[in-house]
Amino acid sequence: MEFTRRGALAVGAGAVAASVLPSFAFASVDDAVAAFTGGAELGEGGLTLTTPEIAENGNTVPVSVDAPGAEAVMLLAAGNPSPDVCTFNFGPMAGAQSASTRIRLAGTQDVVAIAKMSDGSFVRASNEVKVTIGGCGG
C-alpha cells in the first residue's frame, strides 16, 4: 500500500490511526530493538537518557545518553515514520560512555535508548517528549 508521510505521522500520533494500520510503528520499534539485542532480555538501570519534557519544535530536539561502561547505545523515536535515530559505538579512547545530539521528532512520543553493556547485557530507558505544534508559522 501507499505509505505517505502524513499517514506515517498519523500512525505515530494516535490510536485512531493505529486501529486502521495495526501497530505498524510499534512493530518496527520491536524489530529495531531485536536487531540490536539479538532478542536478549532488557534490564533497567545504568543508563540515563536526558530529553526535554516539552520540545518547542520537533525539528531540533536535544537528547543525551550516559551509560558508564557501555559498548554502544542505540536511540529510537517510537513515534517517527521510521524509529531509528542513531547508534553510538564507544571506542577505547572514549572518555565516558556518554554523548549528546539533536534529533527530529514527528510529534509527541517516547524516545527510547538501549545500551549494550560490556558484559553483554542490555538495558533500556525511555522518556516521553511532548512536541509543541504551534500555530504561528511565521
Binding site: N57, N59, G138
Partner: peptide
C-alpha cells in the same frame, strides 16, 4: 495562543535562527 508562548515580538535577535526551518530568518520575513 494555542501552544505558542507569545513573546513581545522584539526584533533585537534578528536575523534569528529558527529551529522550525533550520535557517536564519529576516525581520521582514
Amino acid at each position: 495562543i494555542r501552544a505558542d508562548h507569545l513573546s513581545q515580538g522584539q526584533i533585537n535577535g534578528f536575523p534569528t535562527y529558527r529551529l522550525k526551518n533550520a535557517r536564519l530568518n529576516s525581520i521582514h520575513g
